[in-house]
Write a protein that binds this DNA or RNA. Structure first.
Lengths: 402, 402
DNA sequence: CGGTAAATGTCAGTGTCCCATACATATTCC
DNA sequence: GGAATATGTATGGGACACTGACATTTACCG
């Protein structure tokens, strides 16, 4: 009898135990690390890469060769910058390499884009969808249509990343709850789409995806630990800890907006009370603007208040910044995420608002962390979530951890 | 000329870039993973281990052989439990294997223990030390003396773990700030001791070490993501995320006690205001007890109030539990750490206090997390930090991440 | 203008480790 | 006692990074 019981059910993957490393896995893993290095540092020559990794040049030479053969990288012109010796040939992602489809929702539409490893959007599609009322079936159909528009005919894609404004179970690829997109809940987004399209589909929360967008294509490139915070209607956070997007055990995490900062505070839409969301979002801002009888209170935003420039508007923005700082400082004090990238509403406030938030956050941080705190506004902003969807695919394809 | 520039300065370790995997590294890494599996699951046979890891039996057979040769593991008696087939021989840590020295401070003394991989304390030492006033030199001398008492003459130790009540920079092995042990700040604990003893020395915060104690030897064995919280005089937290102790980029993290939960709240000893510490520690408890004119207010603890059993004491304990729950729930909501292990003062309250805290925490957690929240009292309690010091060494020796 | 130094990229040989397959061993059930 | 079942072990093969040497390209200098 053949000793078939000797072979494991799933290759290299235990039910929940340790996954041992294989000689074959080494190849994939090292390739991933090299690619990650390109993301972190930009174009690099083989020799620079070898120094960075602390390995002989021959080793990365072989790795690079494989990536060149796969069409992932391409050689650029040698940079003659006057140094002695043979100039290195920088390598960079090939123009249409590592294609992935990024899907996002918003403003009555599903948007899909074809994104390359360079972060370039090679194709865009928009399919109308009543996000607030769409049934799961309608939603799935619209998403599928948008994807098919941008899906290249012949070139393969690494996968599809779908970004949802809601709570996701990322291991199951399922949306658990979403106020803005109720039709996505329990729709089996990942499994259904994967089946219909024959591609791996990844689903994740928008705030987390934004963090990945910053990590792969934004200002957070090369920063191992940072927080990305979405402001506006709600508050969401994506945490990149030690180079990895933090998802907890199954992705049901990251509800910074629903951490309590006001004891016995106002009721929150989540059912709890005194959540950070109740004092640092647009609804709060507008309620305060009404109280202060500011003009256009009902539609106030950081941008509009900044433009107004009145003392009342200014005072309100300062209060807003202070309230935002509470949650941000809690993040810094707890996790030491000294770099924070802001998205959404506050970006409209520009440098003055950034400076206010940074100052207020520093004030609330422990002394030994204070000086290191850096708050920045996302340069990607509106595209962050969509690029994050692409980052979702890249991170999964080139996963560094085993 | 020999092409010496070909060889990297440090083997397999880049300045800050990617560290590539080596065939040789695979061996160490897989050995570590196997050992971690023993910690997570208890004694296992080769076949069980192979199933767990999803690899052929021959593979772990070879790995195990190496560990047996090194004296780390030993075979136990086959368990004849009536199943068909050849019974497996369970393996377990050898009695005096993987020795490490654990060092802790407290009650006017330095304590050192020799700890095995089984979590057994093979030797103990105590050297008196005025913790509040000792100079760096006196502190170093006392620590060195305590270590030398338990340090085995001939058997080698993996390392020394020192647990300090204060903020640590774990990469530099330096204490940055400590109210209870001011002499440790800037004393160069790790480097000096390592030089004097010729052993690797690791320094870390007590709350974080407690988490490692629970992970290696306590109830948190095998749980990938959990929080360990120290209660009493202050509040500290150790986070184990995805199987790894979280330290941020340099260890200056984990100040859950100084996250703000009361806007414009009472001033905290850290210089901030409204910190969680100001409403969920013994100083707060005693102040409240005084206000309520409870007997023995100045020395009140959860244990004493529980023993009192009066309505007033009961109400205060409930308030204490509620306040504790705020910070715990924030942790759950933010990071999804559904398992929480409590240490210190509240352990004295036993099951009733545990149930109170758990219930109060659940109330403040988001609906989809609520049911999963489990708050437990540490079974190690007083030993947790010391065993955590041993865990520090084991985690560093058998590091799973590359 | 040619030689030397310096830096980059490449090739062949070696060692380590996991994998597949087969085999030996130990226990239960009939 | 033999079949079935499960565990532990030996052997050959393949993947991969490392070592050390070599080829190539540039700058510097007399």
């Amino acid at each position: 009898m053949p000793d078939s019981a000797n072979a494991p059910a799933r290759r290299g993957e235990g039910p929940d135990g340790p996954v041992l490393l294989t000689t074959h896995l080494i190849g994939d893993l090292n390739r991933s690390r090299v690619l990650q290095a390109f993301c972190d540092h930009g174009p690099l020559s083989r020799a620079e890469l070898a120094r960075l990794a602390g390995v002989p040049r021959a080793t990365i030479g072989a790795i690079i060769q494989g990536l060149l053969d796969d069409g992932l990288l391409e050689e650029q012109e040698p940079d003659r910058d006057g140094k002695v010796g043979k100039p290195g040939r920088p390598l960079w992602f090939a123009p249409h390499s590592a294609l992935s489809v990024a899907v996002g929702f918003g403003d009555g539409a599903v948007r899909a884009s074809l994104v390359s490893a360079r972060g370039e959007r090679l194709a865009d599609a928009e399919v109308p969808l009543e996000t607030a009322t769409a049934t799961p079936a309608a939603l799935l159909a619209a998403v599928e249509r948008a994807i098919r528009i941008v899906l290249p005919r012949h070139a393969p894609v690494l996968g599809v990343g779908v970004v949802v404004p809601g709570v996701c179970d990322t291991t199951a690829g399922e949306v658990i709850g979403s106020g803005q997109l109720p039709g996505s809940v329990g729709a089996g987004l990942a499994t259904t789409l994967a089946e219909r399209l024959g591609v791996t589909v990844l689903v994740d929360n928008d705030a987390r995806a934004q963090a990945l967008g910053e990590k792969w294509f934004g200002d957070a490139r090369g920063i191992p630990t940072f927080a990305s915070v979405q402001t506006g209607t709600g508050l969401g956070v994506g945490l990149v800890l030690a180079g990895q997007l933090y998802r907890g055990d199954d992705g049901r995490t990251g509800e910074l907006g629903h951490t309590q900062v006001v004891p016995d505070g106002a009721a929150c839409r989540c059912g709890l009370a005194g959540c950070w969301e109740t004092v640092a979002t647009l609804p709060w801002l507008r309620a305060q603007a009404r109280k202060a009888r500011l003009p256009g209170a009902a539609r106030a935003t950081t941008a509009s208040l900044t433009a107004a420039g009145t003392p009342g508007a200014d005072a309100l923005l300062q209060a807003y910044a202070d309230n935002l700082a509470v949650g941000l400082a809690n993040l810094v004090n707890l996790l030491g995420t000294r770099r924070i990238v802001l998205h959404g509403d506050v970006v409209g406030g520009g440098e003055p608002m950034r400076a206010r938030i940074e100052a207020a956050t520093r004030e609330r941080c422990l002394g030994y962390l204070r000086a290191d705190v850096q708050v920045t506004l996302s340069a990607l902003d509106a595209d962050a979530a969509l690029l994050g969807a692409a980052g979702l695919v890249l991170s999964e394809t080139w996963r560094l951890a085993v």
